[in-house]
């Protein structure tokens, strides 16, 4: 554990808390992509099956349980409790265009051809692109509420901080995992355009609005 890794995890935690609070307080999930949230739930389910086979630490277990539980809680709020506020007309990204290539890639490019390892690899590749339906939704509607922007910023920062963590680990432990690193870089790059808008607009008190 190093400071970048901890900051990354805290940023991830914060993103989820912001999202759940936004939905709960406003009693609405307007502007949030249910498809991205489904992909995140699938990501954590596939990755954290090792909860039962691989004990790392109490921290690790608590975080994994939190990520799985909150991803399903988000889906419950969006598709059941506050379904009437879900903006499904704008949430139209075709997820099969992500799931199919990600599945094939996980079967071909992995560390070991075993059930758990392929599920882990699948989750790493899927997480990298899971935010695309959400970013597509923002570009389709041309805007995002400030709270949604803060959520996206915290979520994007998480993988960026993990990249610093991987650089740190490479120099201090000679540890590196190419699959995680490459997917993590792709994931972070997808946020670059959003980061730019966040710094130039949202932080100056303006709403995130794309040019028409």
């Amino acid at each position: 554990m190093n400071v970048f890794r901890l900051a990354g995890d805290m940023s991830h935690l914060l993103a989820i808390i912001i999202l759940l609070l936004k939905i709960w307080k406003t009693r609405s999930c307007a502007g949030i992509s249910g498809r991205s949230q489904l992909l995140f739930a699938l990501t954590y389910t596939a990755r954290y099956l090792d909860l039962v086979t691989n004990w790392v630490s109490l921290y690790n277990t608590v975080m994994k349980v939190f990520f799985i539980a909150t991803s399903y809680a988000t889906i419950y709020l969006m598709y059941l409790k506050f379904k009437a506020t879900y903006d499904s007309n704008h949430d139209t990204f075709r997820v099969e265009f992500l799931l199919l290539p990600v599945t094939i890639l996980a079967l071909v490019l992995n560390h070991e051809f075993s059930f758990m390892e392929i599920l882990w690899t699948f989750s790493i590749y899927l997480e990298a692109v899971a935010i695309l339906p959400q970013l597509f939704m923002v570009s389709k509607t041309g805007e995002a509420e400030s709270i949604t922007s803060h959520y996206l910023f915290a979520l994007g920062s998480y993988r960026l901080l993990y990249i610093f963590n991987w650089i740190w680990r490479y120099y201090t432990e000679e540890y590196y995992d190419l699959i995680a690193i490459i997917a993590g870089v792709v994931q972070t790059v997808l946020y670059c355009d959003f980061f730019y808008l966040y710094f130039t607009k949202v932080l100056k008190g303006k709403k995130l609005q794309l040019p028409a």
């Binding site: 890794r5 995890d9 991830h12 630490s57 990520f67 560390h111 075993s114 882990w120 993990y162 995992d177």
Partner: peptide, 10 residues
């Protein structure tokens, strides 16, 4: 498998 990379990250 001991050679499998240890998954200590989240």
């Amino acid at each position: 498998d001991d050679d499998a990379p240890k998954k200590d990250e989240l």
